[in-house]
Design a protein around this nucleic acid. Structure first.
Length: 230
DNA sequence: AAGCCTATCAACCGCAATGGT
DNA sequence: GACCATTGCGGTTGATAGGCT
């Protein structure tokens, strides 16, 4: 016998919550907490499954939820964190007090994603293990990329060639010979890709791989700003 | 005013992760 | 370690509000 979806059990209600149900759930959680979502609906006298109760509480009834439009700062934070974390909505929500993962996900999918794609610039962001976070920004009008790492130069970048370990089409990413700054060339043959996750490694003279310099980037089309603070 | 289309977002579903036995 | 129950997460759906013709 296959698994029975929890809400298909007899008599359990689905769909939008009524104000009465909200009130019952809120009163119960405030009085007794929510240590066991599975048991909660029965104890509270709700004809809902525990999963539905938990979702309603975390996404709507929780007292610390922030209402209203996202601020410019919140938008920028979401864009930046999405660049680093991808679709890890709960991790992004942890950095935005009062916002839920569901809300952020919806906002990204309906507003931010479109906006970011419309504006034809590349933005690369990521982090390096052991080292502080690294950001790279590439102008769409050129094939160069600027590298900023928390306001300081990238450690030992002179000697390293950067390549995308799991994306052969991106292997031509290297620092121009003799370059004195932190720019490097990037081959964008896959420019049509709306979004790609790249895994870069840094190697020294084609020999030893510096594990401590392995880092991940997300690449996606971003707003017209040519650099991102951190 | 009516019908259609689109955008939004609350809620659901299925799977993965976690914890207990 | 295996199994099961429960929780958490991310993708997706569907109701509906609002805009457009």
């Amino acid at each position: 016998m296959g698994r029975v979806p929890c809400c298909e059990k007899m008599g359990l209600k689905k769909g939008p919550w009524t104000p009465e149900e909200d009130q019952i759930l809120m009163s119960f959680v405030q009085r007794y907490g929510h240590e066991n979502w599975r048991a909660l609906p029965k104890l509270a006298g709700l004809l809902r499954c525990g999963k539905s109760c938990r979702l309603r509480w975390t996404n709507y009834l929780r007292p610390d939820i922030k209402r209203g439009n996202f601020t410019r700062e919140e938008e920028e934070t979401i864009i930046r964190l999405h660049g680093v974390l991808g679709n890890r909505w709960s991790a992004i929500a942890n950095k935005l007090p009062g916002r839920t993962d569901n809300e952020i996900k919806n906002y990204w999918n309906t507003q931010l994603k479109k906006r970011v794609i419309q504006q034809n610039h590349y933005f690369l962001a990521g982090k390096m293990s052991r080292y502080s976070r690294l950001q790279m920004v590439a102008e769409s009008s050129s094939s160069s990329a600027e590298v900023i790492r928390d306001g300081e130069s990238v450690v030992g970048f002179d000697d390293y060639r950067i390549y995308a370990a799991d994306r052969p089409e991106f292997t031509n990413i290297e620092r121009p010979a003799g370059s004195q700054d932190d720019s490097f060339m990037i081959d964008r043959r896959n420019e049509s890709a709306e979004y790609s996750k790249l895994h870069f490694s840094a190697i020294n003279g084609g020999n030893s791989i510096r594990d401590d310099m392995v880092f991940w980037y997300n690449i996606f089309i971003n707003s017209g700003t040519s650099s991102q603070g951190s």
